[in-house]
Amino acid sequence: MSRARLEQILAAAMRAEDPVAALREAAGDPALDEATRDALARVDPDGARMQALLVARLRFERLIAGSDEAAHRAELDPRVFAALFRAYHREVPMHAFHPRAEARAFEAWLTRRSR
Protein backbone atom coordinates (compact mmCIF):
# COMPACT_ATOMS: atom_id res chain seq x y z
CA MET A 1 0.00 0.00 0.00
CA SER A 2 1.25 3.43 -0.82
CA ARG A 3 1.81 6.19 1.66
CA ALA A 4 -0.46 8.41 -0.45
CA ARG A 5 -3.34 5.94 0.00
CA LEU A 6 -2.89 5.91 3.76
CA GLU A 7 -2.87 9.72 3.79
CA GLN A 8 -6.15 9.71 1.81
CA ILE A 9 -7.72 7.33 4.31
CA LEU A 10 -6.61 9.41 7.30
CA ALA A 11 -7.67 12.72 5.71
CA ALA A 12 -11.10 11.34 4.85
CA ALA A 13 -11.51 10.01 8.39
CA MET A 14 -10.66 13.44 9.83
CA ARG A 15 -13.53 14.91 7.77
CA ALA A 16 -16.00 12.12 8.51
CA GLU A 17 -18.97 12.59 10.81
CA ASP A 18 -17.64 9.65 12.83
CA PRO A 19 -13.85 9.46 12.40
CA VAL A 20 -13.55 6.31 14.52
CA ALA A 21 -16.09 4.46 12.39
CA ALA A 22 -14.32 5.65 9.22
CA LEU A 23 -10.98 4.33 10.47
CA ARG A 24 -12.49 1.02 11.54
CA GLU A 25 -14.18 0.67 8.17
CA ALA A 26 -10.84 1.32 6.45
CA ALA A 27 -9.31 -1.39 8.64
CA GLY A 28 -11.48 -3.90 6.84
CA ASP A 29 -10.20 -2.95 3.38
CA PRO A 30 -8.53 -6.06 1.91
CA ALA A 31 -6.46 -3.83 -0.40
CA LEU A 32 -4.49 -2.62 2.63
CA ASP A 33 -1.60 -4.60 4.01
CA GLU A 34 -2.15 -6.47 7.25
CA ALA A 35 -0.02 -4.16 9.41
CA THR A 36 -1.96 -1.10 8.24
CA ARG A 37 -5.31 -2.81 8.80
CA ASP A 38 -4.20 -3.81 12.30
CA ALA A 39 -3.01 -0.27 13.10
CA LEU A 40 -6.29 1.24 11.89
CA ALA A 41 -8.30 -1.29 13.90
CA ARG A 42 -6.36 -0.41 17.08
CA VAL A 43 -6.66 3.35 16.80
CA ASP A 44 -7.50 5.07 20.09
CA PRO A 45 -11.11 6.29 19.71
CA ASP A 46 -10.68 9.34 21.94
CA GLY A 47 -7.44 10.27 20.20
CA ALA A 48 -9.05 9.97 16.76
CA ARG A 49 -12.00 12.12 17.79
CA MET A 50 -9.71 14.75 19.34
CA GLN A 51 -7.55 14.85 16.24
CA ALA A 52 -10.62 15.27 14.01
CA LEU A 53 -11.81 18.17 16.19
CA LEU A 54 -8.40 19.82 15.97
CA VAL A 55 -8.29 19.40 12.19
CA ALA A 56 -11.76 20.94 11.85
CA ARG A 57 -10.89 23.80 14.19
CA LEU A 58 -7.70 24.65 12.29
CA ARG A 59 -9.56 24.53 9.00
CA PHE A 60 -12.32 26.75 10.39
CA GLU A 61 -9.77 29.27 11.67
CA ARG A 62 -7.96 29.24 8.33
CA LEU A 63 -11.26 29.91 6.53
CA ILE A 64 -12.28 32.76 8.83
CA ALA A 65 -8.82 34.33 8.51
CA GLY A 66 -8.96 34.13 4.71
CA SER A 67 -12.53 35.15 3.98
CA ASP A 68 -14.25 38.30 5.13
CA GLU A 69 -17.50 36.81 3.78
CA ALA A 70 -17.15 33.67 5.91
CA ALA A 71 -16.22 35.73 8.96
CA HIS A 72 -19.28 37.92 8.40
CA ARG A 73 -21.57 34.91 7.99
CA ALA A 74 -20.15 33.35 11.17
CA GLU A 75 -20.72 36.53 13.13
CA LEU A 76 -24.20 37.11 11.68
CA ASP A 77 -25.56 33.66 12.54
CA PRO A 78 -23.06 31.33 14.22
CA ARG A 79 -25.40 28.35 14.30
CA VAL A 80 -26.24 28.51 10.60
CA PHE A 81 -22.62 29.09 9.68
CA ALA A 82 -21.49 26.16 11.83
CA ALA A 83 -23.85 23.85 9.91
CA LEU A 84 -22.62 25.29 6.62
CA PHE A 85 -19.00 24.80 7.63
CA ARG A 86 -19.65 21.21 8.74
CA ALA A 87 -21.12 20.42 5.32
CA TYR A 88 -18.16 22.07 3.58
CA HIS A 89 -15.66 20.27 5.77
CA ARG A 90 -17.24 16.88 5.09
CA GLU A 91 -17.62 17.40 1.33
CA VAL A 92 -14.40 19.18 0.35
CA PRO A 93 -11.03 17.46 0.75
CA MET A 94 -8.38 19.46 2.57
CA HIS A 95 -5.84 20.89 0.15
CA ALA A 96 -5.37 24.48 1.29
CA PHE A 97 -2.41 25.44 3.43
CA HIS A 98 -3.09 29.18 3.56
CA PRO A 99 -6.19 31.10 4.62
CA ARG A 100 -6.81 32.66 1.21
CA ALA A 101 -6.64 29.25 -0.50
CA GLU A 102 -9.16 27.86 2.01
CA ALA A 103 -11.40 30.84 1.31
CA ARG A 104 -11.23 30.19 -2.45
CA ALA A 105 -12.13 26.53 -1.91
CA PHE A 106 -15.08 27.55 0.29
CA GLU A 107 -16.30 30.12 -2.22
CA ALA A 108 -16.07 27.58 -5.06
CA TRP A 109 -18.00 25.07 -2.96
CA LEU A 110 -20.71 27.66 -2.22
CA THR A 111 -21.00 28.45 -5.92
CA ARG A 112 -21.35 24.75 -6.86
CA ARG A 113 -23.84 24.24 -4.06
CA SER A 114 -26.08 27.12 -5.17
CA ARG A 115 -26.49 25.76 -8.71
Rank of each mutant, 00 (worst) to 15 (best):
M1P: 13
S2F: 07
S2D: 08
S2R: 13
R3W: 04
A4W: 05
R5P: 07
R5V: 11
R5A: 12
I9C: 04
I9M: 02
A11G: 14
A12W: 05
A13L: 03
A13S: 02
A13M: 04
R15H: 00
E17G: 15
D18G: 04
D18V: 05
D18T: 02
P19S: 05
P19Q: 00
A22L: 12
L23Y: 01
R24T: 06
A26V: 09
G28C: 03
D29W: 05
D29V: 00
P30L: 07
A31W: 11
A31N: 02
A31H: 11
L32W: 07
A35T: 10
A35R: 13
A35K: 01
T36E: 08
D38S: 10
R42M: 13
D44E: 12
G47D: 04
G47P: 02
A48D: 02
A48I: 00
R49L: 01
M50V: 11
M50I: 09
A52V: 00
L53E: 14
L53Q: 14
L53T: 05
R59A: 09
E61H: 10
E61F: 07
E61M: 00
L63C: 04
L63G: 01
I64Q: 02
A65T: 05
D68N: 02
D68S: 06
A70Q: 07
R73Y: 08
A74C: 01
P78A: 07
P78C: 01
V80R: 15
V80M: 14
F81Y: 13
F81D: 04
F81L: 04
A83N: 03
L84H: 11
L84G: 08
L84S: 12
L84Y: 08
L84W: 04
F85K: 04
F85G: 03
R86L: 09
R86F: 09
A87V: 11
Y88W: 12
H89P: 10
H89Y: 13
R90A: 15
V92P: 07
V92C: 07
H95S: 14
H95W: 11
A96Y: 08
A96K: 03
H98D: 08
E102R: 00
E102H: 01
R104C: 08
R104I: 00
A105G: 10
E107G: 05
W109I: 11
W109S: 03
W109N: 09
S114K: 05
S114V: 09
R115P: 01
